[in-house]
Amino acid sequence: MSSHSAEALTSDATFLGMSWRKTMMWVFIITDGLLFAGFLASYGFARAAAPEWPDAHEVFHLWFISLMTFVLISSSATMATAVAAAKRGDHATVKKMILATIVGGTVFLGMQAVEWNALFAQSVTLSSNPWGVAAFGNYFFTITGFHGTHVLSGVIILAVVWLKARSGRANAEGVEMAGLYWHFVDLVWVFVFTLFYLI
């Protein structure tokens, strides 16, 4: 890379008024979003093509899933507050809100583990289930598992940011990047919740 192009990628450089770090985070979000779009498109096709599909009301505990949604949306609100606080230099609020977000993410993962266990108890696996629609378990575990992995990654990233914030080394942009990722995880859940559990 020439010194000129290297200079263009320093944190001071901008693209559409954003730093390159933030631009690349958006690029990542778009590409990762397309990955989920591919999963959900494939799920939609499989469901439309299947002569029968298990009734979500019989398979899932809707109130429990709604509680999971409540936890994730709340963690997104605490993260947004942390980002706003970081931009103002309100370090005490940043630490509190990031910690609250980590707790929210961890609780969500625990609830997902409970939900998966309930399905295992009903003999739902990747390749078989009592309703005789093999693709159901496959899509369910792949999509929610992939989303859960994103939540887990987010919790780890936030733990790192929180530790940096505690030692006074976190900057506003770092908190904002972690926030963008966390909101993306919440955004994907909005699709999963609607398309998998409700429709």
Binding site: S76, M79, A80, G179, H183, F184, D186, L187
Partner: peptide
Amino acid sequence: VFLIGFEFMD
């Protein structure tokens, strides 16, 4: 989706 993108993702 709009609210999360517009408000939370700023």
